[in-house]
């Protein structure tokens, strides 16, 4: 299950302020399902047209889990802008997401 909300482009010429996010989930478990819904909602509200979200099912690609040090699920990795950050949980705590993505609320 790989769902791409934006173009899966990994080119270097992307603008710096463009958010590249990768969400690791485990199939359709409640936490994962909630996280997808919450995150999509959050991105559409706060990062409209300024983000790429890649959703990876760890069951399908266990090797990537190892490479990216996935332990807790669901986990969101902010690949850019730097610094790299990891957010775990079902993305229900919006304040934490703001902090994790270095955004200011509102």
């Amino acid at each position: 299950m790989k769902e791409l909300t934006a173009a899966p482009s990994y080119n270097d010429d992307l603008e710096d302020d463009r958010y590249r996010l990768r969400l690791y989930v485990t199939g359709a478990t409640p936490n994962s399902a909630r996280a997808i819904v919450n995150l999509k909602d959050f991105c559409e509200t706060h990062l409209k047209d300024n983000y790429e979200l890649e959703i990876i099912d760890v069951y399908q690609q266990p090797l990537i889990a190892q490479a990216d040090q996935v332990i807790a699920i669901p986990m969101l990795i902010k690949l850019s802008p730097m610094p790299l950050r990891r957010l775990i949980g079902d993305m229900s705590d919006k304040d934490k997401i703001f902090r994790g993505l270095s955004l200011t609320a509102g």
Partner: peptide, 12 residues
């Protein structure tokens, strides 16, 4: 580098 935003498990 980890922010906990809610319920999670160690399925990974």
């Amino acid at each position: 580098e980890i922010e906990e935003t809610g319920e999670y498990d160690l399925e990974g």
